[in-house]
């Protein structure tokens, strides 16, 4: 879906793959890949990947960054497919590769 949305530009390089962990509020894009291999944490990459999938964060879904926290702009609140909202930290959001919808 191609949609001109002035908000989506803010702080993001358009048409370039990035991770959700770097996205600013107003970002709107599509998930290209979910791969937790490079994310450090207590969970094995495979388990983190499954948890993200269980939240509906899957390839092809649209994702919109709605809010961010006060300290270090973390965590973020995202809307998936315009239907459901989730909160996650930027650290885990780095497992989600997205492309901006512009």
């Amino acid at each position: 879906m191609l949609r001109q949305d002035s908000l989506s530009f803010r702080g993001n390089k358009p048409s370039q793959a990035m991770t959700l962990g770097e996205a600013r509020p107003g970002f709107s894009g599509t998930i290209l890949a979910v791969d937790a291999a490079g994310v450090e944490g207590s969970l094995p990459a495979d388990e983190l990947e499954r948890r993200l999938l269980e939240m509906g964060l899957m390839e092809g879904a649209t994702v919109e960054v709605r809010h961010q926290g006060l300290i270090k702009r973390d965590p973020i609140a995202v809307r998936i497919n315009g239907q459901a909202s989730f909160a996650l930290r930027r650290r885990e959001a780095a497992a989600i590769f997205v492309i901006s919808n512009i």
């Binding site: 207590s42 993200l52 609140a77 909202s85 989730f86 909160a87 996650l88 885990e92």
Partner: peptide
């Protein structure tokens, strides 16, 4: 210990 993730649904 490593960080545990924070994943939480924000219901409407």
């Amino acid at each position: 210990a490593q960080h545990d993730p924070f994943l939480l649904q924000l219901p409407d």
